[in-house]
Design a protein around this nucleic acid. Sequence first.
DNA 1: ACAACCGGGACAACCCGTTGCT
DNA 2: AGCAACGGGTTGTCCCGGTTGT
Lengths: 216, 216, 216, 216
Amino acid sequence: MAQPVAQPIRKGARTRQRILERAAPVFNQRGYAGASMSALVEATGLEKGGIYNHFGSKDALALEAFDYAVSLVVRSFADAQRGSDGAVARLVAIIDAFGRSATRPLVPGGCPVMNTAIESADTHPALAERAYRAMLSWHRLIGSIVKAGKQSGELDPRTDAYDLATIVTATLEGALMLSNLMADPSHMERAMAHLTRHVESLRRQPTRRTRQKEPR
Amino acid sequence: MAQPVAQPIRKGARTRQRILERAAPVFNQRGYAGASMSALVEATGLEKGGIYNHFGSKDALALEAFDYAVSLVVRSFADAQRGSDGAVARLVAIIDAFGRSATRPLVPGGCPVMNTAIESADTHPALAERAYRAMLSWHRLIGSIVKAGKQSGELDPRTDAYDLATIVTATLEGALMLSNLMADPSHMERAMAHLTRHVESLRRQPTRRTRQKEPR
Amino acid sequence: MAQPVAQPIRKGARTRQRILERAAPVFNQRGYAGASMSALVEATGLEKGGIYNHFGSKDALALEAFDYAVSLVVRSFADAQRGSDGAVARLVAIIDAFGRSATRPLVPGGCPVMNTAIESADTHPALAERAYRAMLSWHRLIGSIVKAGKQSGELDPRTDAYDLATIVTATLEGALMLSNLMADPSHMERAMAHLTRHVESLRRQPTRRTRQKEPR
Amino acid sequence: MAQPVAQPIRKGARTRQRILERAAPVFNQRGYAGASMSALVEATGLEKGGIYNHFGSKDALALEAFDYAVSLVVRSFADAQRGSDGAVARLVAIIDAFGRSATRPLVPGGCPVMNTAIESADTHPALAERAYRAMLSWHRLIGSIVKAGKQSGELDPRTDAYDLATIVTATLEGALMLSNLMADPSHMERAMAHLTRHVESLRRQPTRRTRQKEPR
DNA sequence: ACAACCGGGACAACCCGTTGCT
DNA sequence: AGCAACGGGTTGTCCCGGTTGT
């Protein structure tokens, strides 16, 4: 029963990971319905039986491949924030990190969360749920940064965390779609500039001029 | 019982139009790969042969159904502008019209342009091309409004039409995706409020404060 | 109500005949199973409904088209014999007439009787029956010529009509197939030369040497 | 029960061969266009997926099934010649072997070469090419026998190998068609008798009488 | 034990021959 | 006579287990 000592990664686990790494771009580019098992066979280099040994179904593989793809994006967010101090700097770092994916995608085929959200909304509840959770965690990430920024006094206390999360994610996802659709990264650049300006406008001002949600 | 005089539309043309009207939501919700001919058969009420009498292939039907769906959106833009005078009012009317589609979609399943852009980018060049053209026409629409607004003196002359087109379409499309993904129309409401404020900030100011693209 | 005088051929009958003339090559080249109704629509220039007004089914059209094609061959046999006196001359004329079809086919696609015999033997009893009858009539034609030739004393009395009918038709049909398969009319030329020599060897000889079916 | 040693043929290869054996008669009887995949499914006992595992398309299966059918005929020619010495004996053996197929067909449905030549001439270039090659090899076989017979002195030196190949194959193929069409093997018997006599007349004669291609 | 092979059906898109309505 | 609609049939691919071989 004693587990083998010092053989940290079994061979099967490495194969499994390799399948995920190679399947994720296929799902991200072709979508769930458009990604055939034979395409996955080609991408992974394994035979169909080999894939089914690790994943019980195309469905299960798609869910894990999605999680894997999201984990790459999340990690890039974490890496981006590492060297940044302050709410504005961290938000800008996230905006930059996402914006870079327009020219250097982490997973080919665009943002996996948006792609999955678009395709699976009316067809695949399990995938749609995963996309929902991923997006929710991003909003919470932004929300926690805003909250910390307000507490530290960096951000205007009237700043609405929900507002900002919506504006940032919506604009970035939309701009990524535009850049890919029109094969022109300047859309993403404009969106990044716009968001950066917007985020910086949220700083607490010594003057009495309001910025956001001005009271009527 | 005099027979109807001058019936301008033959029966076949009416059937063809009905197919488009009923196929468009299927493609918009399920995507091209996910929309099977049998689903289209069910949606249209015709048999397979009946559909193929009017459209040579699923491909041809998808292209025309996309164009039909886009035409609905474009018409809603045109209707929205009709009662509006001035660049800001017209832009806000377009933002409102698009924003309404989050709660009262013109075609079920979200924005056909975004959906098609996401799915077809790496799989279906012909569809991707149509989505590109549709988006381009929207950008040109916004561009022409901005240009007119600058000429009339309503808008700040430093306003960049490209910038605005990108920001507006990216934010709206992203927000629609968010609203649908999270089943929460408030995302779209926040985006509309943000964009409305942004557009209004582009008005020519009697003071010398700059708004957009401030010269460094 | 009086029918128009001196209009011997109704328009419908002409259309019907035109359908046959244009459908026969399609069936002869593609076979019954390979000739689709849409191919026949294209060949005839009519719509499907138009064809079905004249022929109750593809089957009925195929049968009549076969008869039409055979009638062309039969007529060419009759024309060929017209100027020939004597059994040998008439047989050679028929051989010549058939042989010419290798380079100048009466109906594109080869001999309709052989084509139909090959395709329909195991699949279409009604067509196979028509092919059988056509071939039988050719054998009877040759048989009657041989019989007349023996009665007139032109042919050796030991000549077997069945034998000759088999040899002539088998060799000609086989040679036509070879010429078409190998795109080389010399096969037919050799067959014609061989048969002509053979037929001429059947003439009653003044000597006592035997020609055919020599007694062992 | 020692397990079988060195089983050289994997299971898949056996299935593949079985498909060919069972598909060949279907194609030979119904033709390429007339042989539906469902008929092949029925004949082979496999499901469609099983067949498509071994052959990429109906087309590929048809080509290999044709080759298989031809190989049976070619093998029967080889077997027939085995016990025969001399050109005349070998030619007669081939004639006999082919003639037997009228009553005991190697592949049900007639000669695959002729059937394919007839059906595919104007519709299926790849199959027509295969039929052409098969026929060409038969002509070369006859040609090589004639050549050897002339060199050994058995055959009249004026014998034309092309002539003989055409006459033999044309007559045999035509007679097989006649026998099948008219359900009467006597047509083939007459053709065999005729060809046998003809071949034997090609022997070198001690006298100076000519046999073939007499100079005018 | 694990991966490759192989077979199974259901379903894909598409076209067939046919009929009825205009 | 032509257009429109019909379903059943076409070939071909799908995703997925069971078996075989290593």
